Deep mutational scan, measured.
Amino acid sequence: MDPFVVLVLCLSCLLLLSIWRQSSGRGKLPPGPTPLPVIGNILQIDIKDVSKSLTNLSKIYGPVFTLYFGLERMVVLHGYEVVKEALIDLGEEFSGRGHFPLAERANRGFGIVFSNGKRWKEIRRFSLMTLRNFGMGKRSIEDRVQEEARCLVEELRKTKASPCDPTFILGCAPCNVICSIIFQKRFDYKDQQFLNLMEKLNENIRIVSTPWIQICNNFPTIIDYFPGTHNKLLKNLAFMESDILEKVKEHQESMDINNPRDFIDCFLIKMEKEKQNQQSEFTIENLVITAADLLGAGTETTSTTLRYALLLLLKHPEVTAKVQEEIERVIGRNRSPCMQDRGHMPYTDAVVHEVQRYIDLIPTSLPHAVTCDVKFRNYLIPKGTTILTSLTSVLHDNKEFPNPEMFDPRHFLDEGGNFKKSNYFMPFSAGKRICVGEGLARMELFLFLTFILQNFNLKSLIDPKDLDTTPVVNGFASVPPFYQLCFIPV
């Protein structure tokens, strides 16, 4: 058959498939802009700032609406009420993970971030239990974070109060905490193996944040037939998995079943207990991918939040002064901060919360999916439909947070200066898919920041009023603009 005829037939089939998918069930789905064949609503979305586009569309179609990214149908949730109703009140029905062709290629359905069903539930339950087990290797997770915080302070001392970009050092600290939990080992910041790991993690975040990856996920045929950065992403992930597998083999040879040292040991012990169960989800494949998931999810998000926190503290020296006064009063100079201190430091706690609220790190979270046909607000959402959640619409709700575009710790303080919780605080998402490392991340943010401010004054290279804190939105995360500062020993 003539190649031209084959091409026309293929394009015609794709067009018909697109029209059929977009028209099927439209009477039951939430409203939304009319999609174009094949490309859907992509032309109506700013790929570099999806969150802003969703906010604009919500003003037209309401808090629940339908979009098509290519052939992929998505239902968008915008605003606290619908997000709570879906992710919390109907948590089980909305607990699936959205379709990610690239991740599915890399992870093969294993791990904790992109798995679904029984596998996801069992691996998540085990990971939560293990991360909360403060007795691994007779050292609590808090001990590990405190140790890394001391190392971080010593690295900052080496800058000798000269101007520096904190990106690298602030990236090393949370990565080392995860390494300590998974591998029972922290690395020197100049260790070549550690630097290679950091390089792969950072490069992957840069790649994932590009519009090209959005295109690959919406048109998965590209993955096999086109060159691009997605190939580098898959190569980096394969490198990390190979490295983790080597460490798993080392653990198998040296493990003491009665004295687990780290996450890998705990997983291997669980595998041993379930070795007679042919349906067990505790396999080497799941261990390797879960460890890679924890490394990827637990490094860049925390380091970016820390980097943004220091920029905001530079911009608002009056806030920094209040935090340091609270540190001096509650902790002093002669001991290290600990998590028990947080309950006695409402202002510092409010500042950490406000940093996370203000920066809105992951504006749309990772997409969910419905696990069955769901009736939601008089609409029928078919099983498997991807759910896109606007966390921006919750964290920047102007009824809950007056002047949401302003950095103001009073958003989390009552009139008496006591810490005030808010149900709208969802930087880790909400419901059954809430970030498994939430507790660890909150511990790291509090301890790293208090250790830094206990030991250093922060000095800006320019007038604080002239510092730009506008986030650089890159399609996946909101990151701070480049800046330098000086760490002046107190």
Rank of each mutant, 00 (worst) to 15 (best):
L71S: 15
E253S: 14
K84I: 07
F100V: 10
D2C: 10
K59W: 07
C179E: 03
D341G: 01
I452A: 03
R261A: 05
I381Q: 03
L294A: 02
S18L: 13
L268R: 02
T130E: 05
I213R: 08
A161E: 12
M198Q: 09
L485G: 05
R150P: 02
W120N: 14
K247I: 10
F239S: 14
K273R: 12
E415K: 12
K235N: 09
G437Y: 03
L458Y: 02
F239G: 14
I42F: 15
L128D: 12
G111E: 02
L170E: 01
L234Q: 06
G475M: 15
G91V: 03
A238R: 06
E154Y: 08
P367D: 01
E93A: 13
P227M: 07
V248R: 02
Y483C: 08
L295K: 01
F476R: 09
M339A: 09
I223A: 06
T385Y: 02
R433H: 04
V75N: 00
R377A: 06
K322A: 08
L311N: 04
G431R: 01
S180Y: 07
C486T: 14
T301V: 14
R377T: 03
L361G: 04
I215W: 12
R26V: 11
F487G: 02
R108H: 11
K459P: 02
S393K: 02
M129D: 15
K158G: 11
L458T: 03
P363Q: 03
T299P: 04
R307H: 07
R132C: 10
K59E: 11
I327P: 00
K118F: 14
I213H: 09
P174L: 08
T34I: 13
K432R: 15
Q44E: 11
P382R: 06
L71K: 15
S18D: 15
Y424L: 08
A161N: 11
D414M: 06
F69W: 14
D360E: 03
A350T: 01
V177W: 00
F226L: 14
P471H: 10
F376A: 01
L77S: 00
M339G: 11
H411Q: 03
N378I: 02
V64K: 00
I207C: 07
P227K: 12
N196A: 15
R206T: 09
R442H: 11
L447G: 05
R132I: 09
D373Q: 07
P382H: 04
N258V: 07
V83I: 14
M240V: 14
T302K: 00
V394P: 03
E93V: 13
S58P: 01
L9E: 00
K421C: 15
N378K: 09
V6G: 13
L314V: 11
P63R: 04
G91Y: 05
S422Y: 02
E203I: 05
K138A: 13
Q184H: 13
T299D: 02
E400V: 09
N231V: 12
L54H: 03
R108D: 05
L195A: 14
Q278G: 14
N423L: 14
L87D: 02
E253H: 15
M255A: 06
F110H: 12
V76I: 10
H316Q: 08
C435P: 03
K249V: 10
A297E: 08
R132M: 14
N204L: 06
L467G: 04
S23E: 13
L445N: 07
K270Q: 12
A161K: 11
G298Q: 01
P227T: 09
V370W: 00
K200C: 12
K383P: 01
N217K: 10
V288E: 00
K138H: 12
F110W: 13
R442G: 13
A161M: 13
N403D: 15
K160T: 10
I123T: 11
F4V: 14
T299I: 07
Q192T: 12
L43S: 07
L388G: 00
G298M: 04
K185P: 03
N56H: 15
E250Q: 14
A350F: 02
I387C: 07
T159Y: 09
N116H: 09
S180A: 11
L233T: 05
V82T: 14
M406T: 15
I169E: 06
H99E: 09
R377W: 06
I39Q: 03
K421W: 09
Y225K: 11
E326G: 01
V374L: 12
T66N: 01
L440E: 03
G98E: 04
R132F: 11
R21W: 11
I169Q: 09
P402L: 12
N204C: 06
E241P: 01
V355Q: 00
R307F: 04
V64N: 02
N418Y: 11
T386W: 07
G437C: 09
I88L: 12
C179H: 15
L131D: 02
V208K: 15
I60S: 15
C151A: 14
R186C: 04
F4P: 00
S24T: 15
T34F: 09
Q278F: 11
T301N: 06
N217T: 10
I289K: 15
L453D: 03
F94T: 05
Y424P: 02
S23H: 04
G298S: 08
H230C: 08
A161G: 14
N277T: 12
S280W: 04
T320K: 09
R157K: 13
N378F: 03
Y189T: 06
K232L: 09
V394E: 02
R157I: 08
V370Y: 01
G91N: 11
Q324F: 06
M255D: 03
E81Y: 05
S53A: 04
E92C: 12
L11V: 12
A350V: 00
C179A: 10
P464F: 10
Q184T: 14
K121V: 09
F114K: 04
L9R: 06
K421Q: 13
F282W: 13
R150C: 11
S429T: 01
H78P: 01
T348H: 01
S390R: 02
E281Q: 10
D360K: 05
Q184M: 13
F263H: 01
A292H: 15
A321Q: 14
L306R: 00
N418Q: 14
S460D: 04
T130G: 08
S18V: 11
T348G: 01
Y61P: 00
H368I: 03
L131W: 02
V436I: 15
F168T: 12
T130C: 13
D89S: 08
D256N: 10
V145H: 02
V64M: 08
G343R: 08
L458I: 15
C10V: 15
Y358C: 15
Y68P: 02
P166H: 02
D191Q: 07
G91C: 10
E147Y: 09
D463Y: 09
L201W: 04
L43C: 10
N231T: 15
L461Q: 11
F407W: 06
E300C: 12
S18Q: 13
L314H: 03
S422W: 01
Q276S: 14
P174E: 08
L306Q: 02
P409Q: 02
I462C: 15
E325N: 12
F476D: 05
G137A: 12
N217P: 06
K383N: 07
K383G: 07
G27D: 14
T301L: 09
G91M: 06
L14Q: 00
K420C: 09
F183Y: 04
V319L: 04
K275H: 10
L306N: 01
I178Q: 07
W212R: 06
V352C: 10
E274A: 09
P409E: 04
N107V: 11
V75S: 00
F482Y: 04
V351H: 01
E122I: 10
I112H: 07
S140P: 12
S393T: 02
I112S: 05
S115K: 03
A86L: 03
N286P: 02
V177I: 09
S23R: 14
F4A: 12
N56L: 11
R433E: 02
G332R: 04
Q146S: 14
G437R: 01
R186T: 08
D349K: 09
D397A: 05
F407R: 00
E272A: 14
A350S: 06
E285H: 12
S365P: 08
V394C: 15
L152Q: 01
K235T: 14
L467T: 06
E272W: 09
L440M: 10
C338N: 05
